[in-house]
């Protein structure tokens, strides 16, 4: 906003340096055909937030924030979302590599299956998880009898539900980056004697790091906001499975003002974390 005029841009050519010529080009003027829908889009995204802010019971805020249940739910949300992101990274990056770098029959079907949690209503996803990993689920029955592990109604169950819905965001993002990355670097590594695994670790992974990071952030944000699959698969118990979105939903039933407060806390924390992360990568990229 402050430096939109061409003269201003010309007066500060050094900003961004020669490494970022695109930044200077943008300042030369934005065509209205792009600016107008962009601003409309921004307003569309920000307006609901303004609604929350306007409706927030500011005078009552200290009393509501003093409730230890709020912090308990927030702590649980942050730890489970982070754990789910870790799970998604460990399983999702290799899966994305498999989809982008190998040829096998049924690969297109597999790619479609990976996006399944995006299409499935989360509550249905939760029921599906119960049918698979529940006490009487096809795999859960075996988990229970062989290891005595039951996932529903546990914090681990929350992580499972969040990882399930967040996984596609990482896989799609990493796969896209892999396809855009030049495979000749890996081939060069191979000609120099690196095994495929070494090439993946030493060449591919550093190459696609920005895509992995972007996917991880998307997955983390999705896990943090997860509601349907979590409440269906892991239930709702304060301190164990009640994450912030669950607390918000239940507060909405009898105390909408508390729900607004809780939403704002969740939003403030996630925006802070995301903004901090974003700055770090754009500096690195």
């Amino acid at each position: 906003m402050t430096s939109r005029t061409p003269s201003d841009a010309a007066a500060r050519p050094g900003r961004g340096g020669p490494r970022r010529p695109d930044a200077r080009r943008l300042r030369r003027g934005v065509p209205p055909a792009l600016l107008l829908p962009a601003l409309l889009g921004l307003a569309f995204l920000v307006l609901p937030l303004v609604g929350l802010l306007v409706r927030a019971p500011w005078s009552d805020l200290p009393r509501q924030l003093a409730d230890p249940q709020v912090w308990q739910a927030l702590r649980l949300s942050l730890t489970t979302a982070t754990a789910a992101t870790a799970v998604v990274l460990v399983l999702g990056v290799p899966l994305a590599w498999l989809l982008a770098r190998t040829e096998f029959p049924g690969r297109r079907l597999l790619r479609a299956l990976v996006t399944l949690p995006l299409v499935l209503p989360p509550v249905v996803g939760g029921v599906a998880l119960l049918l698979a990993l529940g006490r009487n689920g096809i795999a859960g029955r075996w988990l229970d009898s062989a290891f005595g592990i039951t996932l529903p109604f546990t914090t681990a169950g929350v992580v499972v539900a969040e990882a399930f819905v967040a996984m596609p965001f990482l896989v799609i993002s990493v796969e896209g980056t892999l396809r855009a990355a030049d495979p000749r670097f890996e081939e060069a590594a191979a000609t120099l004697g690196a095994s495929r695994l070494t090439a993946f670790r030493r060449v591919t992974l550093p190459l696609i790091a920005p895509g992995v990071a972007a996917g991880a952030v998307l997955a983390w944000a999705r896990a943090l906001g997860e509601f349907g699959a979590t409440i269906t698969f892991a239930g709702n118990f304060p301190g164990r499975t009640q994450t912030m979105p669950l607390a918000v939903y239940l507060a909405l039933q009898d105390d909408p003002e508390a729900a607004v407060t809780l939403s704002l806390v969740l939003l403030a924390v996630s925006v802070t974390v995301l903004a901090a992360l974003r700055d770090r990568w754009t500096a690195a990229a």
Binding site: F153, G235, F237
Partner: peptide, 20 residues
């Protein structure tokens, strides 16, 4: 102490139907 405080009566029922 229940294992879960469900968000509505139908989901409490579903948990029994699924034998969870």
């Amino acid at each position: 102490t229940p294992v879960s405080y469900e968000q509505d009566v139908r989901s409490a029922l579903t948990k029994v139907e699924l034998k969870e």
